[in-house]
Amino acid sequence: MTKVNITINGQQLEVDASMTILEAAESAGIEIPTFCHDPELTRVGACRICVVEVAGARNLPAACTTPVSEGMVIETESERVIKARRVNLQLIWANHPQDCLTCEKTGSCKLQDYSYRYNVTGSPYQGEAKVFELDNTNPFFFRDLNKCIYCGKCVRKCFEVNGAGAIEFMYRGFNSKVTTAFDVPLEESSCVMCGMCVDVCPVGALTPLQGLHNNRPWEVEKVLTTCPYCGCGCTYYLHVKNDKIVGLTPNFEGPLKGHMCVKGRFGWDFVDSPDRLKTPLIKKDGEFVEATWDEALDLVASKFKEVRAQYGPDAIAGLSSARTTNEENYLFQKLLRSLGTNNVDHCARL
């Protein structure tokens, strides 16, 4: 790998020649703000919040798209850069609802974070603002295009990662909006509800319905776990508040890069389905009656012993489960085999 020498904020660095300014800065622990950048998506350089000052350049190039070159001298927080970032944030503000108090995104909103960082408290620009009706027609998330800042990550995620290509920019310029072909509702488009757009939205334009009004980022504990559906084995963080799941963040650092499908992303609410079994049941006279664990377990153990004594160990069989953990499958087969039989199987074949 060819290396080049650059200077960022006075710090001299030797970095890979293939890096962008953004990557080089990150490698040195220098954080440059971004809205539209996502390491796995095409670099579009659309939001311009990452502009930096490069000695000798006429304009302020975008850090996310500009490659480093030998001898480059970069300032990431110069007065000119900060001015451009502030004006751009103010421009976004001028066309963005100011309802941060109740916005679901509060606390994990990049617009909020950067406004705070650059002390943007409002916008001096008065004028027309976009007005879109709230779209809450699908059962998984709602779209508030009034909050859209046109970073286009949802569009690229949908096209480049999912392949559905359900959404695109429509119209031009100030009248642009992200929507489906012919502006039909999402369910009538090629959308497969994977929710990956929701998870990359830097602002409150796309919000999951699950956990609505109950999901402040600082209130939840995030627990890394593995999806219980198909064999892809996507991993994610469950958001837990008061012993309830209130949301989910894909594991972007995981091997599958945080990709998800509709079942994994939104299908976890069966956990608190009202018909969950909450106590052991023993059938008496054809009816189930609630029992204590000791009653149930004693009965099971004694029945197994009884059958084994009377008919031999091979009169017992067990079906283990492709849903349960390795530890549980291990213990299950150990139990059957310890009883003296190899009659253990599971539904791998189904």
Binding site: C230, G231, S320, S321, N326, N329, H346
Partner: peptide
């Protein structure tokens, strides 16, 4: 082969099979 359930692979690995 693409495994259809979250832990078919594990259940097989763990010997939840008759042989």
């Amino acid at each position: 082969p693409l495994r259809g359930q979250n832990n078919v692979q594990g259940a097989c690995d763990m010997g939840a099979l008759p042989d």
